[in-house]
């Protein structure tokens, strides 16, 4: 028996037509085809989805938690970036 572990994959499931794929968890598989099939068996047993995406975990690059302050705090006091300071003409509906 080879001791080599199968790579880890992240699984994204879309629950209904038109909604986005949401991260639901991870699993091991030898390749993409097996990962999709494993995802079907592990994550859609209770009618959770209509579509599956998988991506090998090593291809996901994340921000470093240590950078959180520098990355995200500066946006806290810049409310003017929200498009809420415009007068919406009465004739524009459904805004």
């Amino acid at each position: 028996m080879t001791q080599q572990e199968w790579p880890l994959w992240e699984v994204f499931i879309r629950s209904k037509q038109g909604l986005d794929h949401k991260h639901v968890g991870s699993l091991h598989a030898a390749d993409a085809a097996m990962a999709v099939q494993n995802a079907r068996d592990v994550y859609t047993r209770r009618l959770e989805g209509v579509s599956i995406w998988v991506v090998e975990s090593k291809h996901i690059h994340a921000s470093n938690p240590d950078d959180a302050e520098a990355f995200f705090d500066p946006a806290a006091d810049k409310v003017y970036r929200h498009p809420t300071f415009y007068e919406v003409p009465d004739s524009i509906k459904h805004m």
Partner: peptide, 10 residues
């Protein structure tokens, strides 16, 4: 492997 354990149970 866990994933195939589940596949066979399914």
């Amino acid at each position: 492997i866990l994933e195939q354990d589940l596949a066979m149970a399914n």
